[in-house]
Write a protein that binds this DNA or RNA. Sequence first.
DNA 1: GCCCCGTATATCAGCCCGATATAGGATGGG
DNA 2: CCCATCCTATATCGGGCTGATATACGGGGC
Lengths: 205, 205
Amino acid sequence: MDVKDLCLGALTYGEATGYDIKKFFESSFSHCFLAGYGSIYPALAELTAERFVTTRTVPGQGGPSRKIYRLTEAGRKVFLTRLRETVPQHKVKSEFLVLMHFAEHLPPERLDAILDERLDDIQRQLKLIQAFEGRVTDPDAPHSPGARFVCGFGKAVMAAASDYIHAHRSGLRRPGRQANGSKKTVRARTKHAQTASRNRGYPNA
Amino acid sequence: MDVKDLCLGALTYGEATGYDIKKFFESSFSHCFLAGYGSIYPALAELTAERFVTTRTVPGQGGPSRKIYRLTEAGRKVFLTRLRETVPQHKVKSEFLVLMHFAEHLPPERLDAILDERLDDIQRQLKLIQAFEGRVTDPDAPHSPGARFVCGFGKAVMAAASDYIHAHRSGLRRPGRQANGSKKTVRARTKHAQTASRNRGYPNA
DNA sequence: GCCCCGTATATCAGCCCGATATAGGATGGG
DNA sequence: CCCATCCTATATCGGGCTGATATACGGGGC
């Protein structure tokens, strides 16, 4: 699954410009998938060349001109095929958690700031999801069970993250160990890790 | 924060080969950060050129030769600086959730298989974390509060995901709506989206 | 008048992912 | 005894994505 597939997916809901598609990603996939213009425009160009979408340009009436993309029947078919064939992955890439892993190397006030930032971000994302859920302008096209499932999933996971941070942030303020000069501690650990490495252990063993 | 920084971080625990570093990522960061050889080896080469690590080659005694990397003092310093300067991001890229969003387009048995796979994967990751937590070969170097925090975070979030899937998977089996021939429904939705698009709404509005 | 923001399209360098190649030793089944 | 498979270990490459940047028009605030 790549950005091309995502664009096809967005276009199953109707015509849209590249700009619209990005907005759609931000509104409904912000917590689980994002794509920038650098991916979207080339994807749409390829899809056009492959005849999976058609495009027409509308001169800007109060704004720049719009290039409106529309799914073809062939496009709808490949999308469904791709959906069925995709081996779904689920990846998290969190510099936040890496920083937390090395928390003892951070100044306490910076640590606090990072945790507060993360909590704010979670709240922001939760609000985005709620905004998406609340937007039902068309009584004939309410959210699909799939969309509801994804929203609920995001809310559940982020609530768990938020709760965990609130419950355990105090534990990050280095208890025990490393009571005296830090250099000695670091050296001792390094020496030990060397031995472990020789014995085919992992660097942190 | 890039793979270079991650390698520096791994090397704060002692000497290691590129292979060791990947194993370290898999053992302690698997649920929040991963890097392949295609990132690690070039990163180590650059770090060597920048004098942030030194390297020595040990001819293979029962195996291929090993190139062992070691952090220099300059390397330790840049790592700490980078830690303090990093603006932490937390990104999820889930093809799984995208598929769930479009669940109504999937055959029911495929949907079930995907959900089961996801649950299995979560269990596998939980076991990995527990294995990492349980590995305390060195009584002088127990896991840091940071490492414990990250493990707990992973467990909390994945438990929430697992619970959510168990509780809501039945809701994905298309209730109401789309009772008759599918084509008509699709066309109706498409037409509506066109109108919405003209009014600067999102494609799914 | 000016600046900033929102809409809209587009490109580019740099980084990362996944696949692939190579190679020796251990392990184990037929 | 041999072959297949796996683990250790290093390294490269193409394709894809991210984030930054450029361009341009219109509206609103000051």
